[in-house]
């Protein structure tokens, strides 16, 4: 319809950049966001190094006495068992990044296909999917995550007992797909009217192909924005779950460290608390700024 009513003035004189090229340019122009993405990258690298066993794999070896304050030998001091707080913090990075990444992937893997199906097929499929997510979104988030984690704990899946970190990312992933599902459904309903979908249908493209190769790539920027916004939430949720005893056990995570610190503070032992809080604070700050920049760069409503 636009093509009919467009006049010469509507056609831009210079060729415009595509969405992603323009987004790249914007993120690069934003120095702060660039710096913050380097910090995020650093966290990811630390997590990878720990995962490969190159870093902090000796966190369970004692390096000194109980509650030694920070010094040149133990930069962040020691905990009650004489374990290095620095190593525990580094190891916690791996836990935190894994939880956030896997939980985000689970929620995308559920939310995106369901949203696309609801938006594309409409009718009874749509009714059922909307009913499921309306129900889930009627249960307050933290309550739902806690209920899931509580029930999943010590159950077995495919013969493997569920414990620790697996429970955390399953509980978070299975409960947090509603937002992206709703978003994708709305976008797909809009895109379905567009000419490119009609064209794909006209030349006999199967429906799963239209959804997978035509519609989802066109809403992928929303998926990226949602992913980056959710990441911080998952990091904070891991802390709360581990603190409540529903999460990580027998491994140092930032939540477990803060839980330990609850009793240490009254003895003026502040370093474990400070290390875990600082680790969370820096990565959340960086992610908040990066996701803001991504949203500014990718949201068509905010594009000039």
């Amino acid at each position: 319809m636009n093509a009919i009513t467009a006049t010469a003035a509507d056609i831009p004189e210079t060729p415009t950049r595509g969405l992603w090229a323009d987004a790249w340019r914007r993120v690069f122009r934003n120095r702060l966001a660039l710096f913050m993405s380097l910090i995020v990258l650093l966290y990811v690298l630390v997590a990878l190094f720990v995962a490969f066993g190159w870093l902090a794999n000796d966190w369970d070896q004692s390096v000194g006495g109980s509650y030694e304050p920070p010094s040149t030998t133990n930069m962040l001091g020691t905990d009650i068992f004489g374990l290095s707080v620095l190593r525990k913090t580094l190891y916690g990075t791996k836990i935190s990044m894994t939880v956030a990444l896997v939980a985000a992937l689970i929620s995308l893997a559920i939310g995106v296909p369901l949203g696309a199906m609801a938006g594309y097929f409409r009718g009874i499929v749509d009714e059922i999917i909307v009913w499921i997510y309306s129900t889930l979104s009627s249960i307050p988030g933290l309550l739902l995550v806690m209920a899931f984690a509580f029930v999943l704990k010590d159950k077995s899946l495919f013969g493997q007992p569920l414990r620790g970190i697996t429970v955390v990312y399953l509980a978070l992933g299975l409960t947090s797909w509603v937002g992206i599902c709703r978003l994708i459904r709305g976008e797909v309903i809009k895109h379905k009217q567009r000419d490119y979908v009609a064209a794909a249908r006209a030349y006999g493209c199967p429906r799963w192909r239209i959804i997978l190769l035509h519609l989802i790539p066109n809403v992928s920027h929303l998926i990226l924005i949602d992913f980056s916004l959710r990441f911080v939430g998952f990091i904070h949720a891991e802390v709360i779950l581990s603190f409540l005893g529903l999460g990580v056990k027998d491994e140092p995570s930032w939540g477990v460290m803060i839980d330990d610190a609850r009793l240490e503070l009254s003895r003026d032992v502040w370093w474990q608390m400070a290390a875990a809080t600082a680790a969370i604070f820096v990565v959340s700050l960086a992610l908040n700024i990066v996701s803001d920049a991504l949203r500014d760069a990718l949201d068509p409503k905010l594009r000039e």
Binding site: H236, I258, A261, L265, S266, M273, I280, F281, N288, I289
Partner: peptide, 21 residues
């Protein structure tokens, strides 16, 4: 943004530690 980045547990622990204890 700084306030959003600090986990809620930290607010509670630090508040209780400094202001009450």
């Amino acid at each position: 943004v700084l306030g959003m980045s600090l986990p809620s547990l930290a607010f509670i622990l630090l508040g209780q530690y400094f202001l009450a204890y």
